[in-house]
Design a protein around this nucleic acid. Structure first.
Length: 172
DNA sequence: GGAACGATTGAT
DNA sequence: TCAATCGTTCCT
């Protein structure tokens, strides 16, 4: 997913960005919402790959994931940061800041910047207003791997991936 | 039915 | 370092 473009088209306009930071949540991973089995909240994680898993957290934020394994296996990748491309002004408006580095440098921030809501939970990302485009050009960037952010269980696993040297990641 | 917690953010 | 804020999960 790193280097792919996440796009959301609404009546307000188009907003998009390049994915520069991700975290993997595996089926046998104690930090994953799917670890203890299927529930109403995480059911989308157990669906087929290429769909959006959007969840509400901390009483005020939403996070966006891409379901990544086949039906029946609950796995997803959390999108943690984007490098803003189209719709910068719209994103500034939605985020309430003029600092482009503060638009999409965090999982709940990019959700707000792109106008993603819980209504998108379960929607397909191949086509439609919310979609991911895979660039055809060769990828030249290097990928760095670190521990994940903000978790206690499974904290030692290095399942956070960032585009090396990119200035739009959520933290150094 | 009730309590504790959380894949965060922004202010102090 | 800490408050905001509420749905989900887990316990009784």
């Amino acid at each position: 997913l790193l280097g792919c473009i996440l796009i959301h088209e609404t009546s307000q306009g188009i907003a998009s960005g390049k994915i520069v930071e991700t975290e993997a949540y595996l089926h046998d991973d104690p930090a994953s919402h799917s670890f203890k089995g299927k529930t109403q909240r995480n059911s989308v994680m157990f669906g087929s790959a290429g769909h959006a898993y959007v969840y509400f957290t901390y009483g005020m934020h939403h996070c966006f994931n891409v379901v990544t394994n086949r039906e029946g296996i609950g796995e997803a990748v959390l999108i943690r940061a984007l490098e803003p491309l189209e719709g910068i002004e719209l994103m500034k408006q939605r985020r309430g800041t003029a600092d482009i580095y503060e638009l999409c440098n965090g999982p709940a921030k990019l959700v707000e910047a792109l106008g993603i809501t819980r209504e998108h939970n379960g929607s397909s990302l191949g086509r439609g207003p919310l979609r991911i485009v895979v660039p055809k050009e060769k990828r030249y960037f290097q990928i760095a791997r670190t521990q994940r952010v903000g978790i206690s269980k499974g904290a030692h696993l290095k399942l956070r991936f960032i585009i090396k040297g990119n200035g739009f990641v959520s933290r150094q």
